[in-house]
């Protein structure tokens, strides 16, 4: 699944970034790279962007970007 589909309070691990070039570098500079644990923290009242907890920082990404971040939900964090 991709980061934009991640539910609130679910933990996930980044598996791949599906963007190239400077945009990819930017995300990595913010600490978002394969293996990083992420969590949805809150969503803008207008529905987009969403802020994610990444390495103790709160990083807001627009949906179009979050869609390029592939994640894997960590076991036991899925809320049913």
């Amino acid at each position: 699944m991709t980061l934009d589909e991640l539910g609130p309070d679910n933990r996930a691990t980044v598996v791949a970034l599906e963007i190239r070039g400077t945009q990819r570098r930017r995300l990595m500079d913010l600490g978002l790279l394969p293996g990083t644990e992420v969590r949805v923290d809150m969503t803008s009242p207008l529905g987009d962007p969403t802020a994610y907890l990444v390495r103790d920082g709160l990083i807001a990404l627009r949906r179009s970007q979050a869609r390029a971040v592939h994640v894997e939900v960590r076991d036991g964090s899925e809320r049913q």
Partner: peptide
Amino acid sequence: QTSAYSLELP
């Protein structure tokens, strides 16, 4: 293209 959007919420 809308460039990489990133906003850190300190």
